[in-house]
C-alpha cells in the first residue's frame, strides 16, 4: 500500500461538499471523520475507494465522501459490496449502514457475508433505533425500551452482532465508538489491512430518539488488550461482554478470497462442445 510517489493525502480529500442530513450531535459524524482519516492514512486516492450502503440515517454516508459509492436499497449493501469487490478486487470496498439495515432487513446478507469472507470492511453504526422513520426498535434495542410501536417494550432478546459474526466466520471483529474518531480510524485502518471480511460494530448515539445514549461516553471502556484468534474463546468473551468495550476482539486466520483468474480459454473453444 505504500506509494511514496503519491502526494500525501489529507482527510479532507475524502470529504464531499454535500451537507449531511444528520441531526447536530449525531454519532454518525464521528464515523465520517474516522473514515476520512483512515482513508488518508491508508494512502489510496478517493477514486480507488467505494463506499456502499443501504437505507437509513447512517446509510447516507457515501454521498458525504469523495469516493465512489452506492446508496442502494434497504438492507442490501453487502450483496452490492460483494459483487463489486468480486468483480473489481483492485478497489477498496467499504460497506456502511445502521443496525436496522444490517441486522434486521439485511440480517441474512450479514450472516452470509461473514461466511463468504470477501475482502471488504463492514461498518455498522449501531444506535439501537430506527432513526429515519423516527424511533422504532431495532434488533439491538433493549427489550424494555418504550416507543410508539412498542408501548410496553418489545420484550425481544437483543441481537449480539459480534457473537453472530464470530460464529458465522467473519475474519476481523472490532468495536468502536464515535466519541473517539481517532481510535475508530485506527480500527478501520487495521480492518482494511486484514484479509477477508472485517466487521466493525460502532456505538453511534442517536441524540434525537435515544438521547440517553449521550451517556455512552461514560460507559465506553478499553476492550481486550490483544485480539483473540480462537473463535470459541472470542465467542465466550463477546457473550459475556457488557457491550461497551472497544478495540479488536478477533482476528481470524482465514485467507483472502482467490483473486480473479486470468482468461485461459476462448469462446470458440468453449462452444466446441455444442458442435455435432
Amino acid at each position: 500500500m505504500n506509494a511514496p510517489t503519491l502526494p500525501k493525502l489529507d482527510p479532507k480529500d475524502f470529504k464531499s461538499d454535500v451537507k449531511p442530513i444528520w441531526c447536530p450531535g449525531c454519532g454518525d459524524f464521528g464515523v465520517l471523520a474516522a473514515l476520512t482519516r483512515a482513508s488518508a492514512q491508508v494512502g489510496r486516492p478517493p477514486e480507488e475507494i467505494a463506499v456502499v450502503s443501504g437505507i437509513g440515517c447512517s446509510s447516507r454516508l457515501p454521498a458525504y465522501t469523495s469516493a465512489y459509492g452506492f446508496h442502494g436499497v434497504h438492507g442490501r449493501a453487502l450483496p452490492f459490496a460483494i459483487g463489486l469487490k468480486s468483480a473489481r478486487p483492485d478497489i477498496e470496498v467499504i460497506a456502511v449502514g445502521g443496525d436496522g439495515d444490517g441486522y434486521s432487513i439485511g440480517g441474512n446478507h450479514f450472516l452470509h457475508a461473514c461466511r463468504r469472507n470477501v475482502d471488504l470492511v463492514y461498518i455498522v453504526m449501531d444506535n439501537h433505533v430506527y432513526g429515519m422513520t423516527k424511533g422504532q426498535p431495532s434488533p439491538t434495542t433493549e427489550p424494555d425500551w418504550i416507543c410508539n410501536i412498542a408501548p410496553a417494550g418489545t420484550g425481544l432478546h437483543p441481537l449480539n452482532p459480534m457473537t453472530l459474526a464470530v460464529a458465522a466466520g467473519a475474519n476481523f471483529i472490532a468495536r468502536g465508538f464515535t466519541g473517539d474518531p481517532n481510535g475508530l480510524a485506527r480500527l478501520i485502518v487495521e480492518a482494511i489491512a486484514w484479509p477477508g471480511f472485517a466487521f466493525i460494530e460502532v456505538l453511534s448515539p442517536c441524540v434525537t430518539f435515544r438521547p440517553e445514549q449521550k451517556d455512552w461516553k461514560h460507559a465506553v471502556h478499553a476492550g481486550p488488550a490483544e485480539p483473540l484468534s480462537d473463535r470459541a474463546r472470542a465467542a465466550a468473551v463477546l457473550l459475556s461482554d457488557d457491550g461497551f468495550g472497544t478495540g479488536i476482539f478477533f482476528k481470524g486466520e482465514r485467507s483472502r478470497a482467490h483473486p480473479l483468474p486470468a482468461a485461459s480459454r476462448t469462446m470458440d473453444d468453449i462452444e466446441r462442445r455444442f458442435a455435432l
Binding site: 450483496p79 468483480a87 480459454r265
Partner: peptide, 27 residues
Amino acid sequence: ELGGTLLQAEDELAAVGMAVGASYGGV
C-alpha cells in the same frame, strides 16, 4: 476460464444486488 466470476448468492435479493454491484464496477 474467461477471467470472470460467478457467485451463488444466499437468496435472489442478494443475487441481483451482487450483479448490480459488479456492474457498478464496470463489468
